[in-house]
């Protein structure tokens, strides 16, 4: 019985130690694990211009402007605190629209505009039939419980 107890203690201590070590490493690496930066990060953290980064946020209502060449789009994303202008040349994903969470990869230009090379659409964790979504919009309860992970 004694040896079993020793082994049990050893396994428990090893797991606790390993868990603590992992937590420390993940905390230290947090900057590298986040998939994208919010417009607030861009405004406050002084991210280097000219280096490839990803930014994410909600597409601002009525900010989408198609340029004359037909394939370049300018729009803004927001995290409700700051907004960031983005230009992108290429095909946008189907889910791209006003109010949608998106992630863009590219570079911050010196003039503060983010030049995107790739735009990905996020979707939130809410699933419902279209009729239910319409009914919610009609009754004015739309997006009350929305937790779009893009920007909280």
């Amino acid at each position: 019985m004694k040896r079993k107890h020793r082994r049990l203690m050893f396994v428990l201590f090893a797991l606790v130690g390993l868990g603590a070590a992992t937590a420390l490493v993940l905390t230290a690496l947090e900057e590298n694990i986040v998939f994208f930066h919010s417009p607030t990060d861009v405004a406050e953290k002084d991210l280097p211009a000219g280096r490839t980064i990803r930014v994410g946020g909600l597409v601002v209502e009525q900010s989408i402007q198609k340029q004359a060449d037909g394939v370049t789009v300018a729009f803004q994303i927001t995290d409700m605190a700051h907004t960031l202008p983005i230009v992108y040349t290429g095909i946008l994903p189907d889910l791209f629209r006003e109010g949608q969470g998106i992630v863009a990869e590219g570079e911050l230009r010196a003039d503060g505009v983010f030049a995107a090379r790739e735009v990905l659409a996020k979707h939130d964790e809410t699933y419902m039939p279209p009729e239910v979504a319409d009914a919610l919009k009609k009754s004015g309860h739309w997006k009350e419980t929305d937790g779009t992970g893009a920007e909280q």
Binding site: L26, E30, I33, V34, F35, F36, H37, S38, G56, V103, L120, K122, H123, D124, E125, T126, Y127, G147, G149
Partner: peptide, 15 residues
């Protein structure tokens, strides 16, 4: 999905 910004959305069922 809760600790970091991810492209994957947060949990829908076990939350």
């Amino acid at each position: 999905v809760d600790w970091w910004n991810t492209l994957h959305q947060p949990a829908s069922v076990l939350k």
